[in-house]
Design a protein around this nucleic acid. Structure first.
Length: 485
DNA sequence: GTCAGTTTCCC
DNA sequence: TGGGAAACTGA
């Protein structure tokens, strides 16, 4: 149907009433039927969304749009089609200003709603009512607005092993989760930011809850406690005006762990609060739940100036591990009984360390690209806090001087390493005097260990025996001769 | 009974 | 508030 026809149908008349609206309905219906037959743009490849903004093909179009020779973005699948006009005058004539006054970003917050109302996103008063350039311009705007949707970004991740999860029975504050860039002198907190257009946003409400470390991120039974966490809720609720500050830091946010026997109860509570950001349901068993690791999940609700609300996709933080748990804690070497040994290895060393799991630990020797492991069996791990092991041989058996290498504890499951300590490899024959001493000791040991007489000794003994015998014979001869005389 | 993980207590 | 350690629990 031609635009002029539509316009003529909508001329204000005194008789216009229900019949005119019926006619509008009919026009919309007719148009929507035609729309169905139109080729639709292909969905964008998923990897496009992951491109940096500067490399994003659509973004680059947008970036150049302010230039004088403004390029025209043509929707896929429409460039080759004959010109077709959308019924924009319909909107122009509408009494309702809902569509035209809707905040652009509000309209762009949902792809579904945008496609539903895409034509209405164009500002009909500023453009011609027909022709492909108008249509393309409208599509461009629509796409720009879709792409320029506000988004929630974690700008300061939580520190992964900064704190210990506390039980409720400990009757104390659960501490505060620090930011990953926190230092002793400059403490930071996990923070989020609303990025993108916020012109028509009145208020932002963020719900923070705990979810499991692994996909799918299910609600975690542990609780968030602190300043913005309503008593007993286990979640954190904050509301802020993004025009004052796009960023919000979560100070005084602690993790309170629940006892194993209270897991179900806690999950039920979360369910009753309607907290399941990724709609995972509760089908999976809780037996495989990692109690020592959680992620923060941020669910953001935007409230527009016209009072309507939109939700952004939930965003999760990096993983936070319980500092106390043996399976996830920071590894630490307290001391070794000796810090030097020959480059041939096999030196027995006693190591004291913080709690380890004997089936998930190794002792890593390293220097540059060279790496080797200390040798020990699980039975050599004593009550999780001491390990008796043998040093590995150094890569170079012909070193002429001492060589320092790093020794660290390494958890196999997550490749986490302790701070290294230095171990010194000594040359194979470091001291000639030492060698002589060792040889002397060795011969003495041989003599003691082998008291039997050797061949040389036999001959000596025999000669000694002969000389003694000869001496006594002579003596006897002299004595007998003198007595005969 | 041993061991390792969990929970609670307290400095 | 941080952390050590005892007490408890279950395999």
């Amino acid at each position: 149907m031609k635009d002029m026809d539509i316009v003529s149908h909508l001329q204000p008349t005194s008789e216009r009433g229900v019949s005119d609206f019926d006619l509008i309905d009919e026009i919309i219906k007719e148009d929507s039927e035609q729309s169905v037959a139109l080729p639709r743009p292909c969905p964008p490849p998923t990897d496009l969304s992951e491109l940096p903004r500067s490399q994003h093909p659509r973004m680059s179009v947008r970036q150049s749009s302010s230039q004088s020779s403004r390029p025209v973005l043509v929707s896929r699948g429409t460039a080759h089609l004959p010109p077709r006009s959308f019924p924009q005058p319909l909107l122009q004539m509408s009494d309702s200003n809902e569509m035209t006054s809707a905040p652009p970003s509000r309209a762009a917050t949902s792809l579904a709603s945008s496609s539903r109302r895409g034509q209405g996103l164009c500002q009909p008063t500023s453009r011609s009512s027909s022709g492909v350039s108008s249509q393309n311009q409208g599509d461009t705007d629509m796409l720009e607005r879709i792409l320029e949707k506000p988004r929630l970004v974690v700008v300061e991740e939580p520190k992964d092993r900064g704190m210990r999860f506390r039980y409720e029975c400990e009757g104390r504050s659960a501490g505060s989760i620090l930011g990953v860039s926190s230092t002793d002198t400059n403490k930071t907190q996990p923070a989020i930011e609303i990025q993108g257009p916020i012109d028509f946003i009145k208020r932002v409400t963020v719900t923070v809850s705990l979810v499991t470390k692994d996909l799918p991120h299910r609600p975690h039974p542990h609780c968030l406690v602190g300043k913005d966490c309503p008593n007993g809720s286990g979640i954190c609720l904050v509301t802020f005006n993004p025009h004052s500050n796009r960023r919000h830091s979560f100070a005084n946010l602690g993790i309170q762990c629940v006892r194993r026997k209270e897991l179900d109860l806690s999950l039920q509570k979360r369910s009753s609060q309607n907290i399941d950001p990724f709609k995972t349901g509760h089908t999976k068993g809780i037996e495989d739940l990692d109690m020592n690791a959680v992620r923060l999940c941020f669910q953001c609700e935007l409230e527009w100036e016209d009072g309507r609300k939109d939700s952004l996709s939930p965003v999760v933080s990096s993983t936070i591990y319980d500092k106390k748990a043996t399976t996830t804690s920071q590894l630490k070497i307290t001391c070794l009984n000796q810090y030097k040994g020959p480059c041939t290895g096999k030196t027995e060393i006693y190591m004291l360390c913080d709690k380890v799991q004997k089936d998930d630990i190794e002792i890593r020797f390293s220097r540059g690209s060279w790496k080797a492991n200390g040798e020990f069996a699980q039975t050599d791990v004593h009550r999780q806090i001491a390990i008796v092991f043998k040093t590995p041989p150094y890569q170079d058996q012909n070193i002429t001087g001492e060589v320092d290498v790093n020794v660290a504890l390494r958890r196999i499951s997550d490749q986490m390493e302790s701070e290294p300590v230095t171990f010194t490899y000594l040359p194979h024959n470091p001291d000639p005097y030492e060698v002589k001493r060792k040889c002397r000791v060795k011969s003495e040991i041989s003599f003691r260990e082998k008291p039997c007489v050797t061949g040389g000794a036999w001959i000596s003994s025999f000669l000694f025996f002969l000389s003694v015998k000869f001496f006594y014979s002579c003596l006897l001869f002299l004595v007998c001769g003198s007595s005969l005389n």
